[in-house]
């Protein structure tokens, strides 16, 4: 195989393999992640984290989390955790709910201290964990600017 063929192949195959593997968005040795999952695998998928690709102002970034779940007593979302890569407080927010919500979806606003990746982890009623990750470019960071 020629070098350029190998490079082209790796470029094509990498994003797909990375997206499907467990813990593609999180580190299994991250104590914060472990505090939510108890060491279980976090699979990419089922969760959609909606954040703007470019945020002019990190003080207030609109965010929506959607989880693919029917929200019935038998099958629902138990919790959604939001983890920041660069905020001084990485544990941004956790939302606990259940079948009383008609949709596994909520909207709020976040503060982001600079361009970073934001991860959402959802815990389903069957005990499985799912994640999504979004890279946000923040033009004006919140929090720590002096």
């Amino acid at each position: 195989m020629k070098r350029r063929h190998f490079l082209a192949l790796s470029l094509i195959s990498l994003p797909f393999s990375a997206a499907g593997e467990p813990n593609a968005h999180v580190s299994t040795i991250d104590p914060l992640v472990r505090s939510f999952t108890g060491g279980k695998d976090v699979l990419p998928g089922k969760v959609t984290l909606v954040l703007p690709r470019i945020a002019d102002n990190g003080h207030s970034v609109p965010m929506t989390v959607k989880v693919d779940s029917p929200m019935t007593p038998a099958e629902h979302v138990r919790a959604v955790h939001l983890i920041s890569e660069k905020n001084p407080v990485r544990d941004m927010a956790s939302f606990y709910f259940g079948p009383h919500l008609a949709r596994a979806e909520f909207t709020s606003r976040l503060r982001l201290n600079g361009s970073q990746r934001v991860v959402a982890i959802a815990e389903l009623s069957d005990g499985s964990f799912w994640s999504d990750m979004v890279q946000v470019e923040v033009r004006e960071a919140a929090c720590t600017e002096d």
Partner: peptide, 24 residues
């Protein structure tokens, strides 16, 4: 009946907003 609980931090913007859908 408790339907939603949020544990928040300064990572949530000032004047926090929340929007969700309850089952009536």
């Amino acid at each position: 009946v408790e339907v939603l609980r949020a544990i928040t931090s300064p990572g949530v913007a000032a004047n926090p907003t929340l929007r969700f859908h309850l089952r009536a």
